[in-house]
Write a protein that binds this DNA or RNA. Structure first.
Lengths: 358, 358
DNA sequence: GTGAAAGCGCTAACAA
DNA sequence: TTGTTAGCGCTTTCAC
């Protein structure tokens, strides 16, 4: 307890004005003469005054804080979004505070929402799955924007990528490379975006007149490790796919590991394509072909929507969708020649293993 | 603006007691009769009362919030630490809010510190490099614990891993495998922990009586991409190393990619060992041999130190160091036979390329 | 253009 | 065991 931090009262006293004048000056509000304002600003900076946002918020005003709620911090998916949101917020004169939903569900979502509401002017929710949070969010009467979850109940404005279209892009790419047996490794069915990707996969298959073998549709949990296991099963099929489309990049990494483990090569024997285009995708070996989500744009669009809501505009029913983009790198290639046109009845496994042994 | 959130006054009124009694009851303070307390608790939960931590903080009390300051969110290094800290904090009845230092330095560190101070009871700073933040932190008179940075100025209690010893573990392992030409790929020299790792590498080399070739000590920036480039240079040397120790796992991934690119294999031709043991290390292919930092323990130890400081105990000079642990996986193996005992004068590159071509 | 008063929701400190 | 008073630092409202 050396010395207290300077408060608005200190600034006011030193400047010989009332607190209100100081407040107005420092916040750029009208009603202060040019000279007074300059003087106050100078003094404030001299004594190192920093507004107390806690008090600011409590007294009914805004405090320039945007809260971000994210289910997890350890995926590049969320870090990218948070990074982008932070940039956009700062550009809009706000700071960002992140709250991670606890892995244990001990704490009720309601409490968390309450907490964030008290701290911030508005909330950005990264909620891939139809979370219970939505209910708590609804009861909080403060601006909310949801990322990656349009939601069935249209309660909040949302920003997401065109998952359906993106998945089609992936299948198109594979089909053009001559693949016919294209597998899909999905994730948690509760995640709206993931469901859309699967629909996109399915519809694109039909559009290309490709067989739609239910055995080629498998489910993971968006983690690399699970993808590895699930993909291993896929590769052990009597008639394995020549290409695997995964619901996210992380899964694609697991698939590639599984392909290697099976003694096959990517993309020579099996093509793999992911979804997201997290930074790691480019650095992976082989560099991952994937469908890009424009994280930066999504984040800044979400922040801007939030900011305009905070400013009092109604954006309640806004649904922003960004197009996905195919990013071709090294993990996809032409389908093996002998499988390109028709799917032979006999298991192609052997011949491929041989080729690989060269 | 549907309806205001319930406040302590509401609870008190409904319970027919004063605000203070309600406050005491809800905070588990002594001085409230059993029945009154139960009744108040019931009512509070009935009307969905959630304490306003902003007001709580403003009124001079604690608010059960721990602020975490991290330079970045997109490394598993920091996510692991934050995850662990969150768990520990919650176990101690606190919530955690994360602030990411902006990538642009527009905002002064001082402002950020001010902000966090207002919001929280104490700060956990993940500051790998000797940051300017330390100065700002010092001026904030609230508990601070620093992770991964013992600091030259002994200002704050800190928690870190034994970087020096960990690096020696890595070199010991390599030396036991018969490696003689062991390279070190470091990172930012400003990072204290990284400097310690280099010292450990150097001293261990001497201890093992191994040659200390300055050419084998190169510097990256802890990123995978840079490591790839730097390692490529290392491999192109007339007399390349047979093992590479990197300052972090991320760099090791880049090195492995470079080794592959050069047509060599890990660990047959080149052994690679990292530092950190981030989750990705285990899932990488080949699974990475590395030196583990006990993130969970470090984080919870840091939180506990912080908590005790908040409780009023003095921990100003506390320095906690955790031992590092060698985790042997698949990226290290015996040194190539012909290089195991002595370092031949002629370039060994050719013979290794041949072996690889088998 | 400026200031005074009141209060945001809560908790210390002191009564009773 | 309980209540009263005061005030955290700021902004709103309304007066000058």
């Amino acid at each position: 307890m050396t010395k207290q931090n300077p408060t608005l009262a200190d600034v006011a006293r030193l400047a010989g004005v009332s607190q209100m004048t100081a407040s107005r000056a420092l916040n750029g509000r009208p009603g202060v003469s040019r000279e007074t304002r300059d003087e106050i600003t100078r003094i404030a900076s001299d004594i190192g005054y920093v507004v107390n946002r806690t008090a600011q918020k409590l007294s009914g005003g805004r405090n320039g804080i945007i809260g971000i709620i994210t289910p997890t911090l350890d995926t590049q998916f969320s870090s990218e979004l948070i990074l982008g949101a932070g940039r956009a917020a700062r550009a809009g004169g706000c700071e960002v505070l992140v709250y991670t939903l606890s892995d244990d569900d001990r704490r009720t979502h309601h409490d968390v929402m309450g907490l964030m509401r008290q701290f911030s002017d508005g909330l950005l929710a990264i909620l891939p799955r139809e979370s219970l949070c939505l209910d708590s969010l609804a009861s909080a009467n403060l601006p909310v924007v949801v990322i990656d979850q349009r939601g069935t109940l249209n309660r909040f404005p949302s920003v997401s990528v065109d998952n359906y279209g993106g998945a089609q892009l992936a299948v198109d790419h594979l089909a053009e490379l001559g693949h016919r047996r294209i597998a899909y490794l999905g994730g948690d069915e509760l995640i709206e975006g993931v469901r859309d990707r699967q629909r996109g996969y399915h519809d694109a298959l039909i559009r290309h007149g490709l067989p739609h073998d239910p055995e080629l549709v498998v489910t993971g949990d968006l983690s690399q490790i699970t993808a590895f296991e699930v993909a291993s099963g896929l590769l052990a099929m009597p008639e394995p796919p020549t290409a695997i489309f995964t619901a996210n990049d992380q899964s694609a990494f697991g698939v590639i590991a599984a392909v290697r483990e099976a003694g096959l090569r990517v993309p020579n024997d099996i093509s793999v394509i992911g979804f997201d285009d997290i930074p790691m995708a480019e650095q992976f070996h082989p560099a991952l072909t994937t469908v890009r989500q424009p994280f930066q744009q999504m984040a800044s669009s979400a922040v801007n929507t939030l900011l305009s809501q905070i400013a009092g505009f109604d954006a309640a029913s806004q649904r922003i969708t960004f197009p996905a983009e195919l990013v071709v790198r090294d993990s996809t290639g032409p389908a093996p020649l002998e499988l390109r046109r028709a799917v032979p009845a006999q298991a192609p496994r052997k011949s491929r293993m041989q080729r690989n042994g060269l």
